[in-house]
Design a protein around this nucleic acid. Structure first.
Lengths: 151, 151
DNA sequence: CTATGTGCAAATCCTTTGCAATCCA
DNA sequence: TGGATTGCAAAGGATTTGCACATAG
């Protein structure tokens, strides 16, 4: 954790940005919720617990800053707000996609290489230079599928 | 076209909704732009050419209505607005996914069965009841890839 | 005639921006 | 000190909603 923070600080510093206390709090929240997919407002509320004087705008600006440095990335599950997660999306060949339960809203990470050769096939078939891809699978999680008769 | 309109009218009528002139114009625009992925505002502007007195709210309400009857469906390419397309998303086993050019914004339909056995694999691996899935591939289209050196 | 549909403007929701105050190298 | 950072409030953009009027059946 401390190490990651140091690395981020380094990354920012080398581009003339500072690792301020507020920014560090935002980063910590994201680190402590790696699996969560927090919205800006959720991050804001969590950061406020540690730094009550933070402003929502600062959180937005920080998320934008981190995103531009590929420290975090945003995603969209179609609920009208962006959600953020620590880590770069496309680096280190390790993509993860999502299973979205349409009933309870739960989001399950899917770290799969199911799409192994997909990019290559697309490139060939459509003459399209693939940079990244995103897969969302909608349906029902185990719990909701089990209890579905009592809708 | 006429036939499709009749079918939609039927579908609405059987649920106590009317096929009004405004609604028909919205439907026509979607039908005439099957391949386009129009935003609500774009639909609005097109409808206005035929029915200048239409209101943006009516277009939104109509799109919502059609979507709820699975006559059209909406999608999101991450540009902050919903886009609409005639036809149901998951019916008739014929899904199409999208290639999104990050440079010029062009969207290319990809009607592929690249994901053939994906749902089955997900079901088994995650005990998740798959209803639908959506794939977006980001990158550069032929034209933009060709001209990329002159950024 | 009566419920449904519609336009307009106001309201919402999420996010961004302007600006003056604050902070830190 | 001076540019970077921040909080607050206002602005923005997309979408929704309240309400009085128009309209279809």
């Amino acid at each position: 954790m401390r190490r990651v923070i140091g690395e981020v600080e380094e990354k920012l510093r080398s581009n003339e940005y500072k690792m301020t206390p507020k920014r560090e709090q935002v980063l910590r929240v994201l680190l402590e919720n790696k699996d969560k997919h927090l919205s800006a407002e959720e991050v804001y509320n969590l950061v406020k617990q540690k730094a009550p004087d933070v402003g929502l705008a600062t959180v937005y600006r920080t998320l934008e800053l981190f995103t531009s440095f590929d420290i975090i990335h945003s995603m969209d599950f179609g609920d009208g707000r962006k959600r953020y997660e620590f880590g770069s999306e496309s680096a280190d060949g390790h993509r993860h996609h999502h299973l979205i339960c349409e009933k309870c809203g739960k989001i399950i990470e899917m770290n799969e290489d199911l799409l192994e050769d997909l990019e290559e096939r697309v490139t060939r078939a459509y003459d399209f230079e693939v940079v990244d891809h995103e897969l969302k699978v909608f349906g029902r999680c185990r719990e909701c599928a089990a209890g579905k008769e009592k809708k």
